[in-house]
Design a protein around this nucleic acid. Structure first.
Lengths: 138, 138
DNA sequence: TTGCGTGCAAAGGTTTTGCATGGCA
DNA sequence: TGCCATGCAAAACCTTTGCACGCAA
């Protein structure tokens, strides 16, 4: 199915610029809707979902599925920054539910190790590391 | 939240033995309900969901989220095998669905690194590494 | 003008929850 | 006996879809 955008619409532009302004932050579809409603310029929720899906298909946005019980998270992909800083991983705290964005060279190295020694190509976009954060591990 | 089981019930036993019998197969909560209904010994769907959640917390079962739009998959984890081999990680191939049990010192080291440098205590029982296996990455 | 994008409302399907009953230890 | 587990129904939840209208090219 080809969901790539063919038209450039106002909604698409402001959605993209909002995602960019949030940077590496994790945003749900509902967050997006609430934000624009508060701004006094609401976007229909189906538009938000459809545009986000398109942006994911285009590779401009990543989608993370944390759990069945929580909504999907989206985040803008800064391709330039990704090349500079390396790969991002995601840690989910089983205690407080917090999602942590992690840039870690050692984890990046592990990907190479898994590849060469275990013949497994890790997909950091899909993988979520579960555990306990600093506050919750007491 | 502590959801580990305290009582041993009939439903828990037959659910576990069913999961074991399926081995590496992918099972949804609905599959479980349908199976026991066909067997003439139905289990309430809320019981199925609650028991599966407990089993995941205990590390006896892994939970896989394929997509937001499709139900979660469950799969029995051979706990004895993992105990024997030490710290065991699980890699799930996104291509063929194969579950790979991995004993890897480098991955174990990463746990220490995450602990000390990122203050995150990784839970290898709960965490599933997604990616592509040797056969599928061509 | 053509056809995609939008937005509203409603549907869809999975998972959770309230509450009374039943079962384990 | 004291809790925990069960099961039913209903709710909650996120996400998708149908359809008429609006807008980009």
């Amino acid at each position: 199915m080809d969901t790539r955008s063919k038209y450039r619409t106002k909604q698409r532009d402001i959605l993209l610029s909002y995602l960019r302004s949030v940077g590496g932050g994790h945003i749900t579809a509902n967050d997006v809707c609430s934000y624009f409603k508060e701004q006094g310029a609401p976007i229909g929720q189906s538009t938000v979902y459809r545009q986000l899906e398109s942006l994911v298909d285009e590779g401009l946005v990543n989608k993370y599925i944390i759990d069945t019980n929580s909504p999907a998270c989206f985040e803008y992909v800064d391709h330039d920054m990704c090349q500079r800083d390396g790969i991002c991983f995601h840690c989910k705290c089983e205690g407080c539910g917090k999602l942590i964005h992690l840039k870690c060279d050692e984890l990046s190295d592990i990907m190479g190790h898994l590849n060469e020694e275990h013949h497994f190509t890790l997909d950091p976009k899909r993988t979520v590391l579960y555990g306990l954060c600093e506050d919750c591990r007491k």
